[in-house]
Design a protein around this nucleic acid. Structure first.
Lengths: 160, 160
DNA sequence: TTCGTTGCAAAAGGTTTGCATACCA
DNA sequence: TGGTATGCAAACCTTTTGCAACGAA
């Protein structure tokens, strides 16, 4: 069971109901191991022949976010991208500007630094958002060779 | 001369014209030493009796951003906030979630870490966005005393 | 006179919400 | 049966754009 599903079935308040739509959203989201937007997730579901409304997708993602099962970033256009969070707390990702693939990076240095920040500044409840982007090795190589390296959707999401 | 004005008058391509509206936007923005949204800046201008269109404000801020004279962050709602950049390259800020005031923080540790990230991952052109928020000492104290600490607009912006 | 700039209104794009309907428990 | 979830459409917000009029150089 993925952490997304675990979060949904366990950490959720009483009174929630299991429906065909939520299950489909969760399944598709779980199969998508990289960042996806709500719009893209909805497109994937539609493509797969699952009739789910866009607002339902938004609502499901919002609920997951509340439970703390997803990491959220904003892309350059301000669109929110969701990714299921690996067990063990929040992570930061290095996202390829070209193909959209992401990889979690070790941010212990930054975490420790951020923790100390409160003491130094007198601020309480310090939170941080860190977004990293670059061009991955594959895309960099492809670009050098004059190819068309950019994909719209991360590969991990296309096979749902 | 503030860095914002310097950027505008010096670093700008030939062919740009000085107009009453741009001057007003720049002056008000320069007087605002903290993050402001385009909407808020427009409101300040209107309040001050300067008739400037909203699109003009957006265009002016976009130009400043191009020239590299401003730091931009997104607030929780996704709205873009602009702040004139102190001389010496990009900075990161710790913003009070309560009153909106921000202070630049020393991020050398993070900068160095981010620089090394490229080598470790094979990514090129690594860029980072770091947003920090917390509750400042003033607001924390006010909250303890049961006051109403939260202001809509940072103090530095209210006196324009 | 030239052509960059302005301002209005409309468009665009993502996200949220209202409300009647569907359906889980 | 009661009440939550859904889905559609409309509302919302911020930001961008089209275009005619304006005005700096």
């Amino acid at each position: 069971m993925s952490s997304a599903e675990a979060g949904w079935t366990e950490a959720v308040e009483p009174g929630v109901r299991r429906t065909r739509q939520r299950a489909a959203v969760l399944r598709t989201f779980a199969a998508c191991r990289d960042f996806v937007s709500a719009q893209a997730l909805h497109a994937l579901l539609t493509e797969a022949g699952v009739g789910v409304g866009l607002s339902t997708v938004y609502r499901a993602l919002r609920d997951l976010e509340r439970v703390g099962c997803v990491d959220v970033v904003r892309d350059q256009t301000g669109e929110r991208l969701y990714r299921q969070r690996p067990d063990g707390g929040h992570r930061h990702y290095l996202i390829c500007r070209c193909c959209g693939r992401s990889r979690a990076v070790d941010t212990d240095v930054v975490e420790e630094w951020a923790d100390r920040l409160g003491e130094q500044t007198g601020f309480t409840g310090v939170e941080h958002t860190l977004e990293l982007s670059g061009v991955c090795a594959d895309c960099g190589t492809a670009a050098e060779q004059g190819g068309a390296p950019c994909r719209e959707v991360p590969p991990s999401c296309r096979s749902t």
